[in-house]
Design a protein around this nucleic acid. Structure first.
Lengths: 111, 111
DNA sequence: TATTCTTATCGTATATTTGCGATATAAGAT
DNA sequence: ATCTTATATCGCAAATATACGATAAGAATA
């Protein structure tokens, strides 16, 4: 029970769902927006802009880093994060592909 | 602890993350693709196309229905599902807005 | 060296998700 | 009326996600 069946799906489906999962929490969307807004890389200032504890924010950042949407480097005593635009672009275009490939077949609701 | 902090974020952030969550599992992406591929509404044939039990597929369909991406009607003894193109379009454009609004500010990675 | 500041990680509690089998429900067929 | 067929829901187990405080680790500073 509750065995992970995710591997039974195609690579693209797994990839897309992993991307979507990264955005599946408002805090992570907020973090991405903050990172985009501040041109320079922001570190712990993110914590001050969010209603979450420092450890929680760090966890969300780790998830975004794991999916590749965010890059991080250590800058002296602090950590510097920023958006990985390349991965972001890939995500965007793959979603566009999914949407348009779906629409090719059908456009009419039947229910 | 583990109190739900999702309400602390903006409506748009919550909405977008809810949409993303709907796509955050490969099975649900596969279901959407199946629904798009078959022009007419497909019911339990989805179960045969997926490596999941009937009850599990029904649950995923319910989630897609709850987020509004899928419509369902009862058609005699069977259920008929199809994509809610209107909601789908909204999702698509809102994601596009997020992406482009982020890119306006910055385009250069700094890490 | 001791202190402080920043961030990551650990441990823990709770909530949610995923998945299945069993059962209920509802309509058509016998 | 009973049986079959299709689907939804219930109940449960296991896995993951969310959130926090406490602590560790690493670098700059006193």
């Amino acid at each position: 029970m509750a065995i992970n069946k995710k591997e039974s799906f195609t690579g693209k489906e797994q990839e897309l769902s992993a991307f979507a999962k990264a955005l599946a929490h408002p805090a992570r969307i907020a973090i991405l927006k903050i990172l985009a807004r501040h041109n320079e890389c922001i570190c712990g200032d993110i914590v001050e802009l969010l209603p979450l504890a420092q450890s929680t924010v760090s966890q969300h950042l780790k998830e975004l880093k794991n999916t590749g949407l965010v890059l991080g480097t250590i800058d002296g005593p602090r950590s510097c994060y920023c958006i990985n635009w390349k991965a972001f672009e890939k995500f965007h275009s793959e979603f566009g592909n999914l949407f348009s490939s779906m629409k090719i077949k059908n456009e009419k609701a039947c229910c």
